[in-house]
């Protein structure tokens, strides 16, 4: 395990691990890939308007990036480190202003 963690630490720093540091069979040992920030892919960004939102959670069930944050059945925001800006949330939102897309990836 120590050996495996070292390999990952090296990868994170951008340095390639040497062969004996790679886990046997290339087994994946970290859980979840959210450390890999896909938010940088965005060229458009969703704007959430809590005033207009009815918390129907349609955007949540369709979001391919699990980027719609929900707590106790209510939307609390968008995980901008993961959102790739596909715009499915805004397209499927049944309301006018609750979720809209704006040009540019940066918030």
């Amino acid at each position: 395990m120590v050996q495996i963690n070292n390999a990952i630490r090296k990868l994170d720093k951008g340095a390639l691990p040497v062969w004996y540091e790679i886990p046997l069979g290339g087994t994946l040992v970290s859980e979840g890939s959210t450390e890999y920030k896909t938010g940088g892919w965005r060229t458009k960004r969703p704007i959430w308007d809590p005033e207009d939102c009815s918390h129907c959670l349609i955007c949540w069930i369709y979001c391919p990036e699990m980027a719609i944050q929900v707590k106790d059945g209510k939307i609390t925001g968008i995980d901008t480190t993961l959102c790739k800006g596909c715009g499915i949330c805004a397209q499927e939102c049944p309301r006018d202003k609750a979720m809209t897309m704006a040009e540019g990836g940066d918030y």
């Binding site: 890939s33 450390e35 890999y36 896909t38 959670l57 949540w60 069930i61 990036e65 980027a67 790739k84």
Partner: peptide
């Protein structure tokens, strides 16, 4: 959906599928 949203989704973001990909949905 409200009840479902209380469950942990056992598939996380950070995957490298294209924007708008149907597979993670």
């Amino acid at each position: 959906l409200r009840e479902l949203s209380q469950k942990e989704v056992l598939f996380t973001g950070g995957h490298r599928l294209c924007a708008g990909c149907p597979a993670p949905i």
